[in-house]
């Protein structure tokens, strides 16, 4: 069967696949995953609605006014950033489709044009962020390089209360399993040194009184994350086939 519509092809990645003893792991881009939606997950919209920033989600009637004026979608031209669509996916509960946008959804620049224009009073910008938070907190979206960078950044900052750029770079390289060529390292190192930001390792700066601040802040962040995870993971789709 010839595949004419490229956008319909979703690459299927198999980490470990053997056929008749032959290793065929890898990307299979001519396998079409079924496009049939077989369930509606009320959990997503229930969760979004329960959040203080998400409680206008039910109002959306898909007119598209928000997307029409959206900085990211229209002005910047990032077509796949479509706040109207994100809201629909969350509202009706198409989680699988929604997960594809787990990264894109954070591209919102919070200009709030959508909120100004929505004829139904949806606080679009807040709702879109809440949907993003859901995807993150429910742990259902695959972790991306951007997520790992976020994590490394937060940990780095928490460590001394001030960012250690060179340290962040090292951690991130380790997380991604990357090796930057020595020449490139030297170039970056020089410019960091010249701009006075090469305080790393034992030389790193430290925020005053951070030893006492740190546990408090960390405790708060951990607790917040735990709560969001718990409530988002508690939502479960209603199964399609009966037992």
């Amino acid at each position: 069967m010839p595949i004419v519509e490229k956008s319909l092809v979703r690459v299927k990645r198999t980490e470990k696949l053997e056929l008749d003893g032959i290793d065929v792991s890898g990307d299979w881009n001519t396998f079409l995953e079924s496009r049939v939606q077989t369930d509606l997950d009320v959990g997503i919209v229930d969760w979004v609605r329960s959040q203080p920033q998400g409680d206008t989600i039910d109002r959306c009637w898909q007119c598209g006014t928000c997307t029409a004026g959206c900085c990211m979608h229209t002005d910047y031209g990032l077509e796949e950033f479509n706040p109207r669509y994100f809201i629909y996916l969350a509202q009706i509960g198409y989680e699988e489709e929604l997960r594809r946008y787990a990264q894109t959804i954070w591209r919102c620049v919070s200009c709030n044009k959508c909120v100004e224009r929505c004829p139904k009073g949806v606080k679009v910008e807040e709702v879109v962020h809440t949907i993003g938070t859901y995807l993150e907190a429910s742990g259902r979206a695959p972790e991306s390089p951007a997520d790992r960078f976020d994590r490394a950044y937060t940990e780095n900052l928490l460590d001394r209360g001030i960012l250690d750029e060179a340290g962040l770079f090292r951690t991130y390289e380790r997380l991604e399993g990357r090796k930057t060529p020595v020449r490139e390292l030297l170039r970056m190192g020089t410019s960091l040194l010249l701009s006075g930001r090469l305080h790393t390792g034992p030389l790193a700066h430290r925020t005053k009184g951070w030893r006492r601040m740190r546990p408090v802040l960390k405790g708060l962040l951990d607790e917040d994350l735990r709560q969001r995870r718990e409530s988002a993971q508690a939502t479960r789709p209603v199964g399609r086939r009966e037992p």
């Binding site: 049939v36 939606q37 077989t38 509606l40 898909q62 629909y88 996916l89 009706i92 198409y94 489709e97």
Partner: peptide
């Protein structure tokens, strides 16, 4: 067909 999603649906 969910015409907003542009995908076929079979929902119980």
């Amino acid at each position: 067909e969910d015409t907003i999603l542009s995908r076929p649906t079979e929902v119980p």
